[in-house]
Design a protein around this nucleic acid. Sequence first.
DNA 1: TTGTTCACG
DNA 2: GACGTACGTGAACAAA
Length: 937
Amino acid sequence: MSENAFGKGHHLHLIDGSAFIFRAYHALPPLTRKSDGLPIGAVAGFSNMLWKYAQDAKGSDAPTHVAVIFDHSAKTFRNEIYADYKANRPPLPEELVPQFPLTRDATRAFNIACIELEHYEADDIIATLACQARDAGGRVTIISSDKDLMQLVGGGVVMLDPIKGKEIGPDEVHDKFGVGPDRVVDIQALAGDSVDNVPGAPGIGIKTAALLINEYGDLENLLANAEQIKQPKRRQTLLDYADQIRVSKRLVQLDCETPLDFGLETLEIRDPEPDTLLDFLTRMEFRTLTNRVAEKFALEAPAIPDTPASPAGGAPVAAPDWPPIDHELYRRIGTMAELDEVIATIREAGAVAIDTETTGLNEMTADLVGISLCTGPGVACYIPMAHVAGGGDLFDSGARVEGQLDLEPVLAALKPVLEDDAILKVGQNIKYDWKMLARHGIRMKPLEDTMLMSYALGSELFNHGMDGLAERVLGHKCLSIKDLIGSGKSQITFDRVPLDKATPYAAEDAEVTWRLWQMLRPRLPGHAATTAYETLERPMIPVLADMEMAGIKLDPEHLSRMSNVFAQRMAGLEDEIHGLVGTRFNIGSPKQLGEILFDQMGLAGGKQGKTGAYSTSADVLEDLAAEGHELPARVLDWRQISKLKSTYTDALQTHVNPDTGRVHTCYAIAGAATGRLASTEPNLQNIPIRSDEGRRIREAFIAAPGHKLISLDYSQIELRVLAHVADIPALKQAFRDGIDIHAMTASQMFGVPVEGMDPMIRRQAKAINFGVIYGISGFGLARNLRIPRAEAQAFIDTYFQRFPEIRAYMDRTVANARRDGFVRTIFGRRIPTPGIDTKGPAAGGARRAAINAPIQGAAADIIRRAMIRMPQAIRDLPARMLLQVHDELVFEVREDACTPLIGAARKVMEGAAEPAVKLSVPIVVDAGTGDNWAEAH
DNA sequence: TTGTTCACG
DNA sequence: GACGTACGTGAACAAA
């Protein structure tokens, strides 16, 4: 290779790498690498383009030198000039991010110089190289169609549109901008650029700008003589915005002085090394291109293994070289010296898997029994601290077992490690362990959670428990807890398990967690699940843990009074019902009730379901009651009271924690497929509100003395998300105008004015709006509205006609689900769509679930984002976040701080989508304050 | 353990 | 032409 200086007779090709990548990404379907599912479409397209380029570049006008230039990062020196430069760019598609480094690898594999520089855009580097080459007397071809590069054309520099294959010279630039290349920046400074967020002068486009520049010669002269412009509006704009125009010019002006540390001669064209190139292509598993390249070099194409990608959470593709799990290797820690050794090992490893053993499943009431730790395959230990005699022992003495360490010194020794920012704590459902340790004054950080990784990966199996993951991901069957503590009545607590049995079980849990972490963490990028895991799942752990530990205060007397009233009313209803029937039976038994209603009394109503039992659900009974039958009406009354009593007024009292006097629910982060939370023990997300009777139960949820409860809820969040996601202009405009959305729908559908609308019409429109979110059907709507099916179908047809974007959204979403087996929310959460390929009756349900998932899921993402930011936003206020009910957050606030709390919390909630997503509809949050939840909501 | 019913968003 | 049908949860109870 000669190292002759670049100069006359040489021809430099500069390829705009970023443009290549984006074109490749958008032109190709979302291909993935077969062996591990890594998104690879953009790299494939990019490599093909480079190969095609290399073949074409051997013609008569062949380049002598070539380079591919990339953007280094989003932030450049232009952001120092103007902070909002390119600020309205949508975030990069997550599938694309891991492909950027691979496009660099591809460029090098083709033996082409690969150039990027921190702080500078690719365009600046291209400008610098083009200037250098031109000054040296050579020719330059810029392979790009980006208008921002057109200022460089002229004096031996041309552009080549790679799509049209058309050369762009001074004449073409003049056609586009109305001026020569040397004045292009002046035009751009005036006209601005909405894509790059260059402000320019408002109201002035390319046409006007060209007119002005051609009249005044250049921008500075124009601004200096702006007073003379005849059109008053134009004159005023230029006078008012002179500074902004000058800033814009600095933004669009490319920098020809980029500090590059190499000379043009190093860009001399080189043939690819066949081995290097083929090695890269086979690694990427590009079959066609590998064969094509091998053929060109007259070589045998290397074989590409045909191992299919494992489904998310499936069997490992290539298990690491770990020995099988061996319980003999586990240490039981019985002295502080041994514990110190373990701590040293953890510090060295920088990460530790942790699992706590406790006396129960409720973190608020259970006691800590032991801790297991793992830092590598086979390197695990168990620290027993509170085991007592029992279980395996002959005498169930309950005496403390020998050979254990005391709780306090162990936790004191571990605390610095568990709170050390440089040491990762890995758990399986680590929120449990976090709360357990928080009760002893330890706030663990930073955290990783294998359950949440599995959830973010979005497996169709939807089982993120440790035993299931161990079997699927590690091919290992975990020791069963039942073998240790039994089940049912004879079940014992873990503190009664003998140490020699507890150690292998506990330490195995830590090792399995460690192995799962090693396996699952690297799968996140390939499933484009890293962002969801890091921004929507993992940060929820401490936020929810704090909410759960805070709990909410209950008024037990209020509940018990209600229980008594309900008991009396039920007794009365029971007498009445038994009197109507003539015999006593169990009203709570659907089977007995069905037989009485349909066999004994001979009312109309067919058999339902595979069990052959009659349906006695509320809508069946309501229909019968509407026909004038007394019995079903009384049964409905009884059922309502019975439900309220057993599920709420009775059950809630049993969940009051005696230490705190409050109820502490537990939120499942990975409980619902769509990203919603689920609340258990007790479920505080289904406390009654729709009936007046039930609503009074909310009065039992009260604020602590001197405090208020405040409820903030998102108004119509799912419909707003739908308007944005499905891009429905009419809906978006209605939300922007703040008008009644159901009335607007009715108005659009039935052609009636919003003013003075018949409430019945509005109610129907409301039902349709909700139906759309759920994947509407004529049957479903008909049943909901109790109207003939044909009428319901006609409504739906009109709706789709009025808002055709809905249909497009539904089709698009189902097609995505069919193609991928999952759908995504606008925040990137992956939601599996199992059964989407099944045929038959079940297919409809899967389709509707897929349609609903991105809407329900995005709403769930939004409130998660708000919750994650909330602690920081309210940290200076005497307030705590207590509950989440899907679109509502409940706070407890000192009564003098209600107004600032509402202000701070509303701000976080309304802005929660940003900056990840800029919604095209406003988000509105309503607030209420009261001494109890009924008043606050 | 499974199915039915019903509370919520 | 027939199938089935709103989406997502958890808890209580009956019945196997």
